[in-house]
């Protein structure tokens, strides 16, 4: 039963009107989606590239791929591969592929300290043809300060261990070095004794009478024989001492070469990191300044200004009681 009569002319063809309105709205929405999609590059031809990363930290699907600071694509997938490494696939707009070469590198970068991560494509030999669809790029994770510190630590600790071992070896009372020094000391004492005996004998020779000459000569003969035995003993021991000395010098040379290698590596790391340090500091300074300004601004806005006591814009006046 119909309770209301559609006599009002405004209700005529209401269904058509509502339908056309809905269609118009749908059409506008679709146009908007298409426009946004075009703007985002969804309908642009893309080339698929990939690389393998050791670690998936900072890598996310959807993150930007940039070339010379401009967005040229996005990360499509990030997946854990068979060898527990991370397979990353990139979609790069084909029109930019002329600058992406087979030997280009993908570097994980970050906007400032707090900004988003992105992949920067760098390098590439100009003479090489553009990378093909499915080409594999080399990946270089960007070293942060923490990574540099960790790397330095890993390289320096073996040096310290090696130096400590060498020092312990040198200081060991039963070790070659200490024994060799002890032997040398003993030998030198014996030689001094012999020399003292010879000196005494010669001094005595001046005073001896003719009748004492044979006895003196006999004593001199004995002393010389003893000196001869001592020298023979020294001669016998010297090769051993030299061997020990040689081994010790070998250990020392090994430790020194290890230290030199590690210092070289350290210098290489520092050389790599040094050019980035001013930039990092500058970025950090700018970030801190911006953060401070943001906080200042926020603290003066509702509702934070009701919760925080705003700092004065002039110098505080000291109390008369100070």
């Amino acid at each position: 039963m119909k309770y209301l009569k559609d006599s009002d002319p405004r209700f005529r063809m209401l269904g058509w009107r509502a339908g056309s309105f809905a269609l118009l709205a749908l059409g506008l929405m679709l146009a908007l989606v298409v426009a946004l999609g075009l703007r985002q590059g969804y309908f642009v031809q893309k080339t698929r590239l990939n690389f393998v990363a050791e670690n998936g930290a900072g890598l996310l699907p959807g993150m930007q791929v940039r070339l010379s600071g401009f967005k040229i694509g996005v990360v499509d997938t990030v997946a854990l591969g068979e060898s527990a490494k991370v397979d990353v696939e990139l979609l790069v707009e084909t029109r930019y592929m002329k600058w992406v070469k087979a030997d280009s590198q993908a570097i994980l970068q970050q906007d400032g300290f707090l900004g988003d991560h992105f992949i920067e494509i760098v390098g590439g030999s100009p003479k090489l043809p553009p990378a093909q669809d499915g080409a594999k790029l080399n990946f270089a994770p960007a070293l942060g300060l923490a990574d540099i510190a960790l790397d330095l630590r890993q390289r320096i600790i073996p040096i310290i261990d090696s130096t400590q071992t060498t020092l312990e070896y040198i200081n060991d009372p039963k070790g070659d070095v200490r024994q060799m020094l002890g032997n040398l000391k003993e030998l030198s004492a014996e030689v001094r004794q012999t020399r003292a005996a010879v000196d005494a004998l010669l001094a005595k020779a001046d005073r001896v009478a003719d009748k004492q000459v044979p006895a003196t000569l006999e004593a001199a003969q004995r002393t010389l024989e003893r000196a001869d035995r001592t020298l023979a003993d020294v001669q016998g021991r010297l090769p051993g001492v030299f061997d020990q000395l040689d081994r010790t010098m070998g250990h020392a040379a090994q430790a020194a070469s290890e230290a030199a290698a590690v210092m070289g590596a350290t210098r290489h790391i520092v050389d790599e990191a040094a050019p980035r340090v001013p930039g990092i500091l500058r970025n950090g300074d700018a970030t801190l300044r911006t953060t401070r300004e943001l906080l200042d601004g926020a603290s003066q806005s509702w509702p934070l200004k009701n919760w925080m006591q705003p700092p004065a814009a002039s110098a505080p006046m000291p109390d008369s009681r100070q």
Partner: peptide, 11 residues
Amino acid sequence: AAVLAANRATQ
């Protein structure tokens, strides 16, 4: 900004 920071540090 320096004046604000100074006053905040004083507080």
